[in-house]
Design a protein around this nucleic acid. Sequence first.
DNA 1: GGCTATACGTAGTCACACGACATGTAGCAG
DNA 2: CTGCTACATGTCGTGTGACTACGTATAGCC
Lengths: 107, 107
Amino acid sequence: MKADVLRGHLDALLLAVLDGRKLHGYAIIEALQLRTDGVLDLPTGTVYPALRRLERAGFLASEWDVVSGRKRRTYRLTRAGQRELAAERAGWREFTTVIGGVLGERP
Amino acid sequence: MKADVLRGHLDALLLAVLDGRKLHGYAIIEALQLRTDGVLDLPTGTVYPALRRLERAGFLASEWDVVSGRKRRTYRLTRAGQRELAAERAGWREFTTVIGGVLGERP
DNA sequence: GGCTATACGTAGTCACACGACATGTAGCAG
DNA sequence: CTGCTACATGTCGTGTGACTACGTATAGCC
């Protein structure tokens, strides 16, 4: 996939993958790979800063787990995050409608 | 529409709006407004540099017209531009499938 | 002891859309 | 004949944000 086409859509992806479940950063990357048949392979340098940003914004909450000696920071959606996800989904629909409309039609 | 979500999709829009017709910069902006019911209102500082970039890349060709005393630079797709447009359309389909798949499903 | 997978994180870079600005003509209202 | 608006093209600087390349550390296997 072309570089930085998902500029502006990363937040939506992260919120969506956390919808209804708690995951830590590494698992989020794996979950996105699974859901997209390996097409989306986000680097840690993309995901971790984004998660912290979303937490600062109040859309995510995190807590430390220690599982089999490994510490991992588990994220979950806050209520504001749920609302934000709904807004992101709506924004995505509008975005695809608009761009798809231009790309699909012939003059 | 949220800021710079169309990062990486601008080229596709410009090529698509020029598919099958010749237009000058200002008319391109108006055509995109029309097609999107005013949602897409690209500033000149976005469109003009992009057109020149696409021309440098060989996807567009331009020539000067003078219509009722006004000079305007008219752009048209080259053959390479046609191929690039097809590739952009394919890329768009993949992109929407991947992102839409993540956003649409529930775990 | 070395290797791989798991796991988190930071710092710097770079592409690119955008805002602000500069320039000039046509045509109309007053 | 003076503003003002619409038309039309362009440049420059800025900011954002995903990415590359690092650095760190543990578990488990060979």
